[in-house]
Design a protein around this nucleic acid. Structure first.
Length: 210
DNA sequence: ATGGCGATTCTCT
DNA sequence: GAGAATCGCCATG
């Protein structure tokens, strides 16, 4: 048998072709990998949120709103949707398939490679604080608007295999207070007990993985 | 041309 | 827990 290094190999495109809620859970434990000329940074995804426009008032694509910013959400699953929030860049994986504008927001990672580079970029020697928020890990990994529309199956930015979480916690999404009834939807997912999760919140449900 | 505002973060109290 | 920072996007006129 040939010895193949699968540590940082991209997942295939069909991984992204599953329903958005399912994808949001499946992404937990996978690695997010970013290459730059400075080197590699990578981390296990530990927290995600599903956004299901056009019926989801919290989604940028609510009511089929289609602008330059949200355009990529209308294209195929597996593309990167990055956008600017105040001074930060937030990162989503497009899902739903062509013409169905849905996405999974990645909210936190647990570093697996390139921690020194992350510390340099974040001007911080701390560990957990480096990547425990949606604007934090993007800075640590140098994910920017340049990555908008990039297909996440190849360098410089892609999803790779990781580990299978033992338990997934489920709760309400963060920071969408003005979104009417959508505030209540249980579309936030995190690896139970993981210390890189951005905020403490009581889980509405906990799923154990077989 | 302009004004409101946000899927955030940091630094205080 | 509150307030500021700070800036691009997008809807209006």
């Amino acid at each position: 048998m040939e010895n193949i290094n699968t540590e940082f190999s991209p997942l295939e495109l069909d991984f992204f072709e599953q329903p958005t809620i399912s994808l949001a859970k499946s992404l937990l434990g996978c690695q997010l990998v970013k290459w730059t000329k400075e080197g590699i940074t990578a981390g296990y995804i530990v927290e995600t949120e599903a956004y299901k426009g056009p019926d989801d008032r919290a989604a940028h694509s609510f009511n089929l709103r289609r602008t330059a910013r949200t355009e990529v959400m209308y294209h195929r699953s597996g593309l990167a949707y990055t956008y600017q929030m105040h001074t930060h860049c937030l990162f989503n994986v497009v899902s739903g398939g062509e013409g169905k504008p849905e996405a999974v927001l990645i909210r936190a990672i647990h570093p697996s490679a390139g921690i020194e580079l992350m510390q340099l970029r974040r001007h911080s020697q701390q560990s957990v604080n480096l990547t425990n928020g949606p604007g934090k890990f993007t800075k640590a990994m140098h994910i920017t608007m340049e990555d908008y529309g990039h297909l996440l199956t190849s360098s410089p930015l892609y999803i790779a295999a990781g580990y299978k979480p033992k338990s997934i916690s489920i709760g309400k999404r963060i920071g969408i207070d003005n979104s009417g009834e959508a505030v209540e939807y249980p579309w936030r997912f995190w690896i139970t007990g993981n210390k890189y999760v951005s905020r403490h919140q009581k889980a509405e449900r906990i799923e154990t993985i077989e």
